[in-house]
Amino acid sequence: MTEYTEHLLRESPRKDAAGRFRFVWLVVIPLVAVLSQVYLPRFLPFLAYLELPLLITVHFALSRRGPIPALFYGMFIGLVQDSLSRQPIGMYGIVKTLVGYFAASVSMRFDVQNPVVTFILAFFFYFFHQFFYWVLARALLGEIITFDVQQNLIFGLLNAAVALPLFRILDKLKMAN
């Protein structure tokens, strides 16, 4: 194990330094994320690939580091997303619950303030989110939809690229609180 990997795996001091969001921000931020996903692609269609609710879930889970709050937060965001879609309620809820849980579990082992780690985690969780949603849609709803691996890999990279500045902004917002 190299010195760099040890650095990546050690505990991050961010948990103590960053503090926590106020409750109102915990509600407003995911709603804004969901709303932007609903509204923005109308005028900027190229932003349709952005999965802001997922990135918010990942950020909350990585910064909070508690699997139980993270999974409930993911479930809340997922259910709001479900209620604005045509699928049965619970599809995004289950996927984001899992994302929140695993992201919080992972955050206890990695230095999640490292941009490289953040990028990889955001990419991984986007791909996991899309793949698991595809599995659920096929298994539970019997929908015959295709999973475009190449497209999802590209979108995963784009979302990960957006995650870096977004997480930085959210961290600053949290510190301001």
Binding site: Q37, V38, Y39, R42, A48, Q81, L84, S85, R86, Y92
Partner: peptide, 14 residues
């Protein structure tokens, strides 16, 4: 049309 449905592959609008 006032908005799209959620989801990256969404083909629904409000």
């Amino acid at each position: 049309v006032i908005g799209n449905g959620t989801g990256a592959n969404s083909k629904v609008v409000f």
